[in-house]
Design a protein around this nucleic acid. Sequence first.
DNA 1: AAACCACGCAACCGCACTCTA
DNA 2: ATAGAGTGCGGTTGCGTGGTT
Length: 285
Amino acid sequence: MEMVLQRSHHPVPGQEQQEAAAELSSAELRRGPWTVDEDLTLINYISDHGEGRWNALARAAGLKRTGKSCRLRWLNYLRPDVKRGNFTAEEQLLILDLHSRWGNRWSKIAQHLPGRTDNEIKNYWRTRVQKHAKQLNCDVNSKRFKDAMKYLWMPRLAERIHARAGADDDNRDYSNNDLSCVSGVTMATVANCFDGSPSMVTSSSSDSFTSESQDLKKINLHVHGDDEKMNSEDWMQEVDHEFWSTEIQPNNEQFQDQQLNGWVQGFSEGLSETLWSLEDIWKMQ
DNA sequence: AAACCACGCAACCGCACTCTA
DNA sequence: ATAGAGTGCGGTTGCGTGGTT
């Protein structure tokens, strides 16, 4: 089916488009939640004719929807490779990391999370991350909040990922999972938070936006397959080594803010040995 | 049991950019 | 060169659902 879906057809010739457009006034257009029938109609049509030319597609398929609506429904929900369910620790870490680089460039971030849509990531950010910033009484774009992410959540997520990776070491298979590979790079990135480099400690968080870092280049090389010489496993081992050869020792001097410092210390005392998730951290509030 | 509330997510909107005739 | 159609993206809205009172 996927092969079929990649085709880009022009379902309706120009004249028919105009006629169809005339037939369907805006008053007849449906809005709101999609029905099962509509979903099936869209899926069947795309499997037969391919996607693209969404306005024409909507009319040709007999859907009383705008092309935009069809496109959105397909990309965000009906596509066979859309991944459902909660974000894994790897994905959460990756989102935090990439957002720190690119800001609200959701589609760009989504490109590095296979099966996840920009909409889903955007929702995750708004509902989870921004909510937490609110609870901390600080802006999600503030240095304070970014520091909390950088020095606290991301390392904890990385720890959690690594602990799990260690637990099922025998079952690791990086060759078939882009996300695992990408998250390995993110681990390396997180490790940089603790390497004592002045730039990470003192610079404003926007500094991290200014240039593509080394590990990001690796993401691109790997994901886009430009580096034919390095296979997935070698590459993963390399970035894993980068990360775990760096000792994780959060430097509390990095937290100039007394309130945040106290908050960090508070839950550090409360949770020493458990595996962490963002949810765990939030519950500590 | 019912009313209320908060939350998460699907869907929509508006704008900007690209493509095509 | 240009206008209109198509597409992509980020922001926003509103509905369904589960929890609380």
